[in-house]
């Protein structure tokens, strides 16, 4: 557990010392979301209708942005080799890296999304639902993204390939995340959608660390 905490703190400290990296992701989120009213047109009812999907899809893209460096920097400077040799499970280390990625990107996205939702004319209750779904859903994105990052470590055209691998696997989270906000707006079972979103996160939590660790061991060979 000390190894987990140490690795988590190290990654957070690294992110803290280079705040620009996380800020770029958030800036991308704001700019990309702002494009939709310009592209679709400023009619308030259309914007409110598509807000959940737009904010969720863009959050998915934004969380992909920082993934290619999740293991790449460790791979280049050799600290990944030390992680592989460490006398405690690599799965725990992987979990710490994913947790750090979530705290640096997923959490700020979930906080920022309701602010952007106001510009789309979402109701206060919908804004709360949006923040809740992103809080529950973004850990899944970090875990699946971590898997894609580990699989593409050292590959040619890594960035585009990473998106090609991660996006199809993120679709269930996207469907239930955006669906939950829709359900909340129409008075359907919001809790049910949120529960499925949480279930997806737990399944990802229970399965992806093993797959990521296996992928990293292949990369380290």
């Amino acid at each position: 557990m000390t190894g987990f905490a140490a690795l988590l703190m190290r990654d957070l400290r690294l992110a803290w010392r280079r705040p620009g990296d996380a800020a770029v992701v958030l800036a991308f989120y704001v700019v990309a979301v702002a494009l939709f009213p310009l592209g679709v047109g400023p009619e308030a009812n259309i914007l409110a209708r598509i807000a959940a999907g737009v904010l969720w899809c863009t959050a998915l893209f934004a969380s992909l942005l920082s993934l290619d460096r999740m293991f790449a920097t460790d791979f280049e400077d050799g600290s990944l080799d030390l992680l592989l040799l460490a006398p405690w499970p690599l799965e725990l280390g992987v979990l710490a890296k994913c947790a750090a990625h979530w705290i640096v990107t997923g959490l700020p996205l979930a906080v920022l999304a309701p602010v952007l939702g106001v510009a789309f004319g979402l109701e206060p209750a919908s804004l709360a639902a949006l923040a809740a779904t992103l809080l529950v859903g973004t850990p899944t994105l970090s875990l699946i993204g971590g898997l894609a990052a580990a699989l593409t470590l050292g590959a040619r055209r890594g960035g585009a390939l990473l998106a090609l691998l991660a996006l199809p696997l993120c679709v269930p989270t996207l469907i239930f995340g955006a669906g939950a906000i829709e359900a909340q707006a129409t008075g359907e079972a919001f809790a049910g959608h949120l529960a499925i979103l949480a279930a997806l996160a737990l399944v990802a939590l229970a399965t992806t660390p093993w797959a990521i660790a296996a992928a990293l061991r292949q990369a380290g060979e």
């Binding site: 699989l151 593409t152 050292g154 590959a155 040619r156 055209r157 890594g158 390939l161 691998l165 797959a211 296996a214 992928a215 292949q218 990369a219 060979e221």
Partner: peptide, 17 residues
């Protein structure tokens, strides 16, 4: 993924996962 590596073995194993 299986064709993205200079070392084909690496691509095969990543694609297997």
């Amino acid at each position: 993924l299986s064709r993205a590596y200079d070392d084909p073995d690496r691509g095969d194993r990543a694609a297997a996962i």
